[in-house]
């Protein structure tokens, strides 16, 4: 019974198999710099274990003839408060070449952590990384213009962190209700 359920859980939908095939190519090139594949049916993903390799992995994913991840659909920030980490999740797709899509997670230390910028790989990442910085406070090494994008430039704190406390006043105006 247990075995049967486990087997049923291991059957991957066709879309996930596509992602797995793409992942295997990346794994074959970068080895332990990337984590195990997670066959999440909504969005299969892997994690970049060695963040310093992130730009190389990104360039490989974009340019390799078997991958052609030429489109960054989204870049989101995450606060892993319990693990004292911040992270990003990049949703990548290949428009006009392959049906595969995959998410890549990169993490860094929560305080003073930094992640290499991929704004030079996908231009979409430029504003998205600025937004992640604005909301979570991780810096992006090598970003061409890392400023806050939504909050005022002299805002205090990073609003989407789980322990965020809003400031009392902004330029003499009361902020909380």
């Amino acid at each position: 019974m247990d075995n049967g359920m486990e087997e049923a859980g291991n059957i991957m939908p066709a879309a996930v198999l596509e992602s797995k095939a793409a992942y295997d190519i990346i794994r074959g090139r970068f080895g332990d710099a990337v984590s195990e594949f997670d066959a999440n049916p909504t969005m299969p993903f892997f994690e970049v274990a060695d963040a310093s390799k992130w730009v190389d992995i990104a360039l490989f994913m974009r340019d390799d003839a078997r991958l052609k991840f030429n489109y960054m659909a989204c870049l989101s920030g995450v606060d892993y408060m319990e693990q004292e980490q911040l992270g990003i999740v990049c949703n990548l797709e290949s428009i006009g070449h392959y049906p595969h899509r995959i998410a890549v997670k990169v993490k860094c230390r929560r305080e003073g952590g930094s992640i290499p910028s991929v704004a030079c790989v996908w231009h979409t990442a430029n504003w998205h990384e600025r937004e992640a910085y604005d909301m979570y406070g991780m810096t992006f090494e090598g970003h061409p213009d890392l400023r806050r994008i939504l909050c005022p430039e002299d805002w205090t704190g990073f609003p989407l962190r789980k322990d965020y406390q809003v400031q009392e006043t902004y330029h003499g105006i009361k902020v909380p209700y």
Partner: peptide, 13 residues
Amino acid sequence: WNHGYHVLKGVDR
């Protein structure tokens, strides 16, 4: 009013 850190809670402020 509660979680909108970026919103002025009434223009009469």
